Amino acid sequence: MDIKKLVACDTVLGEGPLWDIPEQRLYWIDSLGNKIFRATEDGNEVKVWDVPQNIGAMALRDKGGALLSLADGFYTFDFETGEATVLEKVQHKSATVRLNDGKVDKHGRYVCGSLETTETKPDALLYSVGTDLSVRQIDDNITVSNGPCWSPDGSIFYFADSRAKMIYAYDYDLETGAVSNKRDFHAFGPEDGLPDGATVDAEGCVWSAGVYKGKIHRIAPDGARLLTIDMPTLCVASVMFGGANLDRLYVPTMRTPPVPDVDETHPDAGSLFVIDGLGIRGVPENRFGG
């Protein structure tokens, strides 16, 4: 296994890695720096776009451009013009809530949660954006939404509330996008970090970034911990398999933690890292169908 810095992008809060197979490009974001990045598999040809608000996540669209989770709602984005256009603003429970992490299911829906930025109140919600561009709430009572992803067959939806230190599993109806039977899937201990961004590999295992402790965890479908990787920086925010063979694990990091009790001092904090030699492949990410 080889861990190396790939792009010295100096993100305030690097998040949301997305490997797009048609383009053979990696996208990632700076949530608090209000930027979208794109690069080749090896970290070359880096391009950067500014967005008008804090950005929680993005999904590429079948029709071109992207769907963005900005602080106050869902927006479409044109990479040619750099213009973000509001699709629907959401009614947050309080002024300290913004949209956060999101991904696309096998039928092209976008599922995204919000977060309460003081990380103290369960005021965040979980939303589903349909291919007809309708937005509906599918869960509530969340503090910090993170790590949405699905089992390879799409029947199980995984989702973390970082401050609860828990990854949950739901039964997922691919026909309707409904979630049910929410249950505890994997709890994080004191040295594991908080569950942040996540992905699923081809064997159905969940990979979750243990933010603030510099960990990446691989968790079996039955909830058992299989592997923990120690990263160079404390603030590892998310993970995504990519590259031509979907066997490289990309890891964006934070330069400035958004919490007062973490002191990130590593000189490469904020860089994009890649892990090679795992011998494991990911699954293709879907594009938003709306």
Rank of each mutant, 00 (worst) to 15 (best):
E264I: 01
D50C: 13
L272A: 09
S271Q: 12
S208L: 01
R183N: 09
L125C: 11
V51E: 02
I142F: 06
F159Q: 01
V104S: 00
E175Y: 07
I3C: 14
T118N: 10
A202P: 14
K165H: 11
N286G: 15
V97W: 01
L68C: 09
L226C: 09
D72M: 05
S238M: 01
D263Y: 06
L13G: 06
G154D: 04
T253L: 04
R183E: 01
A244E: 05
C9K: 15
V144H: 10
I275N: 02
G204K: 01
P284E: 04
E80K: 12
A209L: 01
S238A: 04
W28R: 11
A187C: 11
I275C: 01
L234N: 10
D261V: 07
L115E: 11
H186W: 06
L32R: 10
D30G: 08
C235L: 02
R287L: 10
H107M: 15
T11Q: 06
E23R: 15
W28K: 15
R183V: 03
P252R: 09
P17F: 00
V200R: 03
S180R: 07
G154E: 06
G16T: 12
S155N: 15
D20E: 13
G73T: 05
S238I: 04
M231A: 01
E203R: 15
F77T: 10
G14F: 08
D276W: 04
M240P: 04
G14Y: 03
D261W: 09
F77V: 14
V86M: 08
L246C: 06
F159R: 12
R98E: 07
D42W: 07
I219P: 00
D123Q: 11
R225T: 07
V236K: 02
F79E: 14
F159K: 11
D10R: 12
T81L: 07
D153E: 13
V86D: 04
L278A: 07
L234T: 12
G177Q: 09
L70S: 05
T131A: 11
I3D: 15
T118W: 00
P195C: 02
E203V: 07
L234W: 07
P260C: 01
Y27W: 11
L226N: 12
G82T: 13
L68P: 08
G282S: 01
S69P: 02
R109H: 06
E203W: 04
Q137F: 02
V135R: 10
T228L: 03
A198S: 06
A59N: 13
L234S: 11
A71T: 09
Y168V: 11
P257M: 09
T256E: 15
E285I: 08
S128A: 14
V51C: 04
S134C: 08
G82M: 10
S31P: 00
V236N: 01
K89W: 08
S114Q: 08
V86K: 04
A220F: 00
T81Y: 02
P267G: 05
F37G: 12
N44R: 14
G14P: 02
T265Q: 04
K182G: 03
D276V: 08
G270F: 03
N54P: 02
K4D: 15
I167Y: 07
T96Y: 10
D263P: 06
S94V: 02
D42A: 13
D171I: 00
S94F: 03
V46T: 13
L13H: 08
L174E: 13
F79N: 13
A220R: 10
R248S: 02
A169W: 03
A178M: 13
H186E: 12
Y168E: 14
G56P: 11
